[in-house]
């Protein structure tokens, strides 16, 4: 049985670093661990043993139980096409100019690809734990919704909208004489483009059965996953965190809310007197920041249930294994409690 930890949150809150740290903690406790990561900073990638740019899993040179792989939506989608479509259709799909766009630009595309990678790895039976750093869109909620959205997209939703009804045969889609709307669209976009899109959407439908089945298994895995929701007390990431909690499907687990870059509450009203005026002024302004953070966390506690972890604000982002481990230790402890 593979345990899954899903790490969600807005961009820029330290999600990728914390995912790596959770992976280090898991490996140190003897679990064969895979971290699926998105766009790590170069020095973090190096610490994880991810110096090459492929999306294969690589073992960590210092910690043998820790493996890491980069999530690459384009590469994953090539694998998805070959997995779910007949060979000749798959070849056509991956060379279609719109394929890359769906893989990387369609909001659910990158998230679905990450979900499929997760399912592949979990079902391989290789791992005790898989840690997934979710692609940064809408604070991670996208990741939970992507399987369903992808199924409906591949199932022809866009085709239906384009043709205003049932999915037609290949010839009738381009019967522009019958559809003034298509004739106009043709004028706006140019006929070739419209045909390319149509071809692409028809080919994509070949992957429907595979993607529908896989979506079910991804959804099943997500129901059993532990969730770590990373945020700071800044307004924008906090709003995304609230959205994640409010919109998560009811059958997923309550996330461990992790406030990164936390300041100690003891700075709010320190009792010691500070003689050096510059240091007194400095403590006062950081105290104001600490007070704001405290109020935000109190407000969160008043309106949300579930575990909360505070991670101390560090001057530099950890990017060596011991520092990653010590950063994520409190999150790891909360994950162990929840098991």
């Amino acid at each position: 049985m593979t345990d899954i930890v899903l790490v969600a949150g807005a961009g820029g809150v330290g999600k990728t670093t914390i995912s790596a740290g959770i992976g280090v903690c898991a490996a140190r406790s003897g679990k064969r661990t895979l971290v699926l990561t998105v766009d790590p900073a170069r020095r973090l990638a190096t610490a994880l043993g991810l110096d090459s740019l492929d999306n294969m899993a690589h073992p960590n040179p210092e910690l043998g139980l820790l493996w890491a792989a980069m999530l690459d939506a384009s590469a994953s989608w090539e694998a998805i096409a070959h997995r779910h479509a007949p060979p000749e259709v798959a070849d056509r799909l991956v060379t279609n100019p719109f394929f890359e766009a769906v893989a990387t630009r369609f909001p659910a595309g990158a998230s679905y690809a990450a979900g499929e990678e997760m399912a592949e790895e979990v079902e391989s039976g290789h791992w005790d734990m898989v840690v997934v750093d979710t692609p940064p869109s809408h604070g991670g909620i996208e990741f939970l919704n992507a399987p369903g959205q992808m199924k409906s997209f591949v199932g022809g939703r866009v085709l239906r909208i384009l043709t205003g009804g049932r999915i037609p045969g290949r010839n009738t889609l381009f019967d522009r004489a019958a559809k003034p709307a298509l004739r106009l669209l043709d004028t706006v976009l140019g006929g070739e483009l419209l045909e390319d899109i149509g071809d692409f959407l028809f080919d994509l439908r070949h992957t429907y059965d595979g993607i529908a089945r896989r979506s079910q298994s991804i959804i099943h895995h997500l129901e059993h996953a532990s969730m770590v929701l990373v945020t700071t007390t800044d307004a924008a990431p906090l709003a995304e965190a609230a959205k994640f909690v409010d919109q998560s499907p009811g059958n997923t687990r309550t996330p461990i809310v992790t406030f990164n870059r936390s300041l100690p509450e003891s700075w709010v009203a320190p009792r010691e007197t500070v003689i050096d005026p510059k240091l007194a002024f400095n403590l006062k302004r950081w105290g104001a920041e600490a007070e704001y953070q405290r109020d935000i966390r109190r407000e969160w506690r008043a309106t949300h249930s579930g575990p909360i972890v505070n991670l101390a604000w560090r001057a530099s982002t950890p990017n060596e294994l011991p520092a990653l481990e010590s950063l994520a230790r409190p999150v790891w402890a909360a994950l162990e409690m929840g098991r």
């Binding site: 500070v274 003689i275 050096d276």
Partner: peptide
């Protein structure tokens, strides 16, 4: 920049003031 010498930061009696100073200086350097 914090504008405080290394020694006054190390010698300040208040732990909170020292830690706030260290964080500030570290963030500035980075």
């Amino acid at each position: 920049p914090l504008g405080v010498s290394e020694t006054s930061l190390e010698e300040v009696a208040s732990l909170a003031a020292r830690n706030a100073g260290l964080l500030h200086r570290g963030l500035y350097e980075n």
